[in-house]
């Protein structure tokens, strides 16, 4: 199935897109999403640990299921506020 993933900040720059479509197996999880992401954009492979994935606006662990209807996003390390 195809899922749509929002890209922000560094992730948006390296993909060149606000949103990308990734092909993942039926019943896929966040871990499967990362595999598809790294295949399509190898630049992510080196720093996957620092990229969080959100599912429906919540940070999601590797086992979280992803579905075509979910709102998915790649969240690079954040830097809000002001020191």
């Amino acid at each position: 199935m195809k899922v749509r993933v929002k890209c922000f900040a560094w992730a948006k720059e390296v993909t060149g897109e606000d949103e990308i479509d990734l092909e993942v197996p039926e019943g896929a999880t966040v871990a499967d999403l990362r595999v598809s992401l790294a295949e399509r954009f190898p630049v992510f492979s080196g720093r996957m640990e620092s990229i969080a994935v959100s599912v429906n606006q919540e940070f999601a662990g590797e086992g979280t299921p992803v579905d075509a209807g979910d709102e998915l996003a790649l969240i690079p390390p954040i830097s809000g506020g002001c020191a």
């Binding site: 560094w10 590797e62 690079p76 390390p77 830097s79």
Partner: peptide, 17 residues
Amino acid sequence: WVEGCAVDAETAEPQKA
């Protein structure tokens, strides 16, 4: 890009970036 906190997905808590 100033990257302060990578969020650990399992705990939804920050780690240093």
